[in-house]
Amino acid sequence: MYVSHSRHVRAAIAAAALITASTAAGVVSPAVASADTAQAAAPAVAAAPAVAAAPARFHEAGDLFKVLQFPTLPGAVSGSAAQPVSAEPTPPPAPAPAPPPPPPTSVTPEELARIVPGMPPEKIAQYIAPLNDAMAHGGIDNPVRQAAFIAQLAVESDSFRTFEEYASGSEYEGRADLGNTQAGDGERYKGRGAIQVTGRHNYESVSQFTGIDFVANPELLEAPENAFNTAAWYWTSRNLNQVADSAGIVRVSELVNGGHHALERRVADFQRGLDVLIHP
C-alpha cells in the first residue's frame, strides 16, 4: 500500500512526541514498539532523526510554574512577602443609655383631701390632674415645695372653691404698682386663677409666658388647667421653690400675698401637707 511522504513525516513527529512524554512519565508507549515497523513499511522515506529521551523535568508542580516563568504558584504568597493579616479592631460596645429620671411624685386624691379638708370632693376629682401637671412643670417636686404650694393655693382659692376673687376688684383701680393705668383695670384684672393673679401687669406677663391672651380674655384664667398653670408660673417667676427650701413658709406667704393675711391658716395647711406627704 502506498503511503505518502507527508504522512510519513507526520507519523515520525507524532512518534517522537509520544516517546518524549512517555519517557518523562516513566512509561513506554505501545507507539514506541511499533516505530520500527512503521519505518520498515516505508523504506522510501528518510528515517526520522532519533529523538533522545528527555530527562524528567516536571517532577513537581512548582517546576512547571518555574518553566512557565511564574515566580510563585498562583494565589500563593511567598515566605518573604507573607504578611500577617490583621483583623479590624472590634469597636467597644456602645454604652447603655442612661435610665430616664424618675417622674416627680404626684399627690393622690386621698392625700389632697387630707391636706385640704374643706375641699369639695367633686373638685378633688376635677382638679387633681391639672394640679399635678402644674407641679411637675414647675419643678415643685418634693414634699416641702408641694406642701407650701398647696397651702398657698388653698387659702387664695378658698379651699379650691373658686378661681375668681369674691370682691369686685374696685379696690385695685388706679394701682400703678399693678399696672392698672386704664379706667376699669381694677375690676377687669381682679384676682383670678388658683393663686389669684391680679392686675394688668401680671395678666400681661402670664399671657407672654403661656401664649394665651389673658389681657383680652381675663376670664380664661378661671379654667382649671389655666388656673393651675398660671399658679405654677407665678411660683417659678418668683423662685418660690428655693424660698420654700430655705427661708420657710412665712417668707413664701409674704411673697404670694404681699403681707400676713391668713398667715396662721397658711402655716397650718403647710404643716398638715408635710405630715401627709412625708408620712402617707
Score class of each variant (00 low, 15 high):
53 A>Q: 13
80 S>P: 03
163 F>W: 02
24 A>C: 09
253 S>E: 08
139 G>R: 10
100 P>M: 07
162 T>F: 07
5 H>C: 04
32 V>Q: 10
251 R>C: 02
192 R>E: 10
92 P>Y: 04
14 A>N: 13
26 G>S: 12
28 V>N: 08
260 H>M: 11
192 R>N: 09
241 N>H: 03
235 W>L: 08
174 G>E: 02
272 R>C: 03
26 G>Y: 09
131 L>R: 00
173 E>L: 06
173 E>M: 04
248 G>H: 11
263 L>A: 10
168 S>V: 09
78 S>Y: 06
280 P>F: 08
60 E>G: 02
224 P>K: 15
183 A>S: 13
37 T>Q: 09
134 A>T: 01
96 A>M: 05
31 A>G: 06
61 A>W: 02
259 G>C: 15
80 S>Q: 12
151 A>Q: 09
247 A>W: 01
142 N>T: 11
241 N>K: 02
49 P>G: 13
24 A>Y: 06
202 N>A: 12
153 L>S: 01
30 P>R: 15
28 V>M: 10
91 P>H: 00
236 T>D: 10
105 T>Q: 12
21 A>E: 12
99 P>Y: 06
33 A>L: 12
176 A>Y: 04
135 M>P: 01
35 A>N: 03
55 P>H: 12
118 G>D: 15
167 A>H: 03
46 A>T: 15
174 G>V: 02
189 Y>F: 15
110 E>W: 03
89 P>R: 12
142 N>I: 06
171 E>P: 00
154 A>M: 08
4 S>P: 07
124 I>A: 00
12 A>P: 01
36 D>E: 14
239 N>P: 03
225 E>A: 07
